[in-house]
């Protein structure tokens, strides 16, 4: 039996296929773009190709993320908060608090035995998210994936006071014009992201183990700043982008096995993997 999780985030679309032992058969990550529907389809096809499975071999598909309503071939939809909680627990069973910083939002999750028990979310503003880092990288003519490494060289971090993305961008340019080294500015930026996100997550009472996921977890500078701010160890999974899709796939498996164990039939949607789009 095979199960798929499709996580359409604001920036990236992720598909994971697992078997009943939760072994990952394929994982595909692609940019979400403007057409969730068409892309969900393509990323799924690629995942199938990687796993050499045909679509009718997939027993159940759960869609999650912002674009979860745009996955025509999904059997069920579950919010990314529950899916992240499940996925992260499969990476780190001891997790109690998870921080996920994605392209357009930041979330704090309180997890108990793999189940989401409480959450906070910032989805109104780009400050403290991946988009914020993209804007800054763009301003500096750098690649977003290089920011973390550069910031580690900092010896005298500056304080970035603006929380608004646009004002922070202006502040960075002003600091540069003062002749402050790039690494000190970047370290300051990472610290401002960390303290912003942690201030929000503190509403949940942070308990260890703490896990950091989402695209921003790939930035070593932000990971370091979060550790310093929390004064505790922070675990980062091997592929921090995949927790939502992995969680969706595991929830699909658990749902199917539980239903079968009860002797009930699996009601699946009539589904076909084909190109669909809003735009004609």
């Amino acid at each position: 039996m095979y199960f798929a999780g499709v996580d359409i985030g604001s920036t990236m679309t992720k598909v994971v296929i697992i078997d009943r032992d939760e072994e990952i058969y394929s994982r595909v990550i692609g940019p979400s773009g403007a057409e969730h529907r068409r892309l969900a389809n393509r990323v799924m096809e690629e995942a199938l190709k990687q796993s050499t499975l045909s679509f009718d071999k997939i027993d159940y598909v759960i869609a999650t993320g912002y674009g979860r309503f745009n996955v025509p071939f999904a059997d069920r939809r579950i919010t990314e908060l529950s899916c992240h909680a499940r996925g992260i627990t499969s990476f780190f069973p001891s997790v109690r608090t998870a921080i996920d910083i994605g392209g357009q939002d930041a979330k704090g999750l309180k997890i108990n035995n793999g189940k989401l028990v409480d959450f906070v979310m910032n989805d109104k503003c780009a400050a403290g998210t991946g988009r914020f880092l993209e804007v800054i990288a763009d301003t500096l003519g750098l690649k977003v994936e290089d920011l973390g490494g550069i910031s580690l060289k900092s010896t005298n971090r500056v304080k970035i006071n603006s929380t608004c993305t646009i004002f922070a961008q202006q502040e960075v340019i002003f600091r540069l014009s003062e002749g402050i080294p790039l690494e000190d500015i970047l370290a300051g930026l990472h610290d401002s992201i960390a303290s912003r996100v942690i201030t929000m997550v503190r509403r949940l009472k942070i308990e260890p183990d703490v896990v950091l996921t989402g695209g921003v977890a790939k930035n070593v500078g932000v990971v370091k700043a979060i550790k310093e701010n929390l004064e505790c160890e922070v675990l980062v999974p091997e592929d921090p982008l995949l927790s939502g899709a992995v969680g969706a796939a595991i929830l699909a498996k658990e749902f199917v096995l539980k239903t079968l164990a009860k002797g009930e039939p699996i009601t699946r949607k009539e589904r076909q993997l084909e190109e669909t789009t809003f735009f004609r």
Partner: peptide, 13 residues
């Protein structure tokens, strides 16, 4: 619209 995810997640919790 963004509140919908929170409401759904709350109902899942």
């Amino acid at each position: 619209a963004p509140l919908r995810t929170r409401v759904e997640a709350f109902l899942e919790v």
